[in-house]
């Protein structure tokens, strides 16, 4: 059963991804991106990472994807129609990506051989979300990166407002 669900979400993720990089229409690409994000969220559920699944839906689909759709609308002239999606070097890009994939598969296969059955899956801690929350504010663990991340977000917010602001020539 889990294999079927895994397959479904996997197809959703990868199919969405392929559509993102191939569609000529950017709005369709953005919609496929949402699809792909949703597939990932499903995979998180299978991995028993409920918090990550929720965060995925909220942040990626709720915020980032919407942001991208806005950007598409702001930068796309509707009258322009469907233009060429790829640059002139796409065959090379395809080749390099395929080579990289083959390399990754080769390495994965050495360390974690491809198999049908998972053996010795360790037992999960009692409440992983609680553990994560504690770890993020624990003095001995991630409190410093956590604070730095919040500063990064603030900086990104201020920076993007500054960059995207209309420049008035005076």
């Amino acid at each position: 059963m889990t294999y079927v669900v895994f397959g479904l979400f996997g197809i959703l993720t990868l199919g969405g991804g392929i559509l993102v990089v191939t569609s000529r229409n950017l709005v369709r690409a953005a919609a496929s991106l949402v699809l792909s994000f949703f597939g990932i969220a499903g995979l998180y559920v299978l991995l028993e990472a409920g918090f990550m699944a929720a965060a995925q839906i909220l942040i990626y689909i709720g915020a980032i994807a919407i942001l991208i759709i806005f950007a598409v609308m702001l930068t796309q002239r509707v009258a322009a129609g469907n233009r060429v999606a790829m640059n002139s070097q796409w065959p090379w890009a395809l080749l390099v990506s395929a080579l990289t994939f083959a390399l990754l598969v080769y390495i994965i296969n050495i360390v974690w051989p491809l198999g049908i059955r998972a053996e010795n899956v360790p037992v999960l801690a009692a409440d992983p979300t609680r553990g994560l929350g504690m770890a993020l504010v624990d003095w001995g663990q991630y409190v410093l990166p956590f604070e730095v991340a919040s500063i990064l977000l603030l900086g990104a917010m201020v920076g993007s407002i500054f960059i995207a602001r209309e420049q008035h020539d005076d």
């Binding site: 990089v21 991208i68 790829m86 070097q89 990506s97 990754l104």
Partner: peptide, 21 residues
């Protein structure tokens, strides 16, 4: 799955013309 998704993204970065894409 993750490696494949990564390489799909890689291809998009290399080959798409539109910066949003």
């Amino acid at each position: 799955t993750s490696a494949l998704l990564f390489c799909i993204g890689l291809y998009g970065v290399f080959a798409r013309r539109n910066a949003v894409a």
